[in-house]
Amino acid sequence: MTAGPVRLRPPARADGPDLRDLVMRCPPLDLNSVYLYLLLGEHFSDTCVLAEDQDGLLGMVSGYRPPGRDDTLFVWQVAVDPRARGRGLGLDMLLGLLSRRGRSPVRWVETTVGPGNRASRKLFARLAVRLGAALDETTLFEAALFGSGAHEAEPLLRIGPFTLPVPEAGRIS
């Protein structure tokens, strides 16, 4: 259960340790170093969003624009704290991020989601419906590319094209 209104904001450098802790609470997400999460706040704050309430961090979406493809937002990780799940926060964060004014409009969202990650697959299917756009799946990273670590394949999900502005997020106050 969340406490009070939820606020969306870009990450800051100082959020790095809290972002790592959040991802640690959100299996099956791959956990990265604090350094990487520091970089999200320092270099990628315009393509990432955090959700928080008075008790702290509830969620985050990290992403970037692939080189030479300014019309595309690649969503790298979506994390929602267990206490905030089931309320549409992931979709609200994605819509909030897409509604930001950027250097050029986003017309495509891409991400990779393992076949077993049903929650993320449902989230991106809902995003495609909300944007009125197609969702296509193609091969990107086969399981063998991850080495002997027994990592699931990561197919590419591509949503678009769509036209901004996106519909407003639903329940964020």
Rank of each mutant, 00 (worst) to 15 (best):
F74P: 10
C26N: 07
R103C: 15
P5A: 09
G114C: 05
P28Q: 03
G147M: 02
L91D: 00
H151M: 04
H43D: 15
E152A: 02
E168R: 14
R83A: 07
G90V: 15
L39A: 06
R107D: 10
P115F: 13
T2D: 14
P17N: 09
S62H: 01
V113W: 01
T112Q: 13
M1D: 15
V49W: 02
L157Y: 12
R121C: 09
V34Q: 15
R7N: 02
A12Y: 15
A51Q: 07
T163I: 08
A119L: 06
Q54T: 11
L50I: 11
R20Y: 05
P28H: 01
S33R: 03
E154Y: 02
E42D: 04
F124Y: 00
V109R: 13
P11I: 10
L164S: 13
S173K: 01
M93R: 11
S33C: 09
V113M: 05
Y37P: 00
L164G: 14
R69V: 02
G147V: 00
E152M: 08
T72L: 01
D71K: 04
D92G: 07
C48W: 06
S104W: 03
R85Y: 04
A119P: 03
S45F: 00
R7L: 12
G41R: 04
A12R: 14
V61E: 10
E137M: 06
K122M: 12
R7C: 08
Y64V: 12
V78I: 05
D136H: 15
L156Y: 06
G96P: 01
L8R: 08
L50G: 02
L38C: 14
D21R: 15
T47V: 13
E168A: 13
G160M: 01
P66T: 09
R130W: 05
P66F: 02
D46W: 04
P17E: 10
L157A: 08
P82C: 10
R101D: 15
A125T: 09
G114V: 10
R69N: 00
L22W: 08
R121S: 05
A125E: 07
N117C: 00
S45L: 05
L95N: 09
C48T: 10
L164D: 14
R130N: 00
R101T: 15
P28L: 07
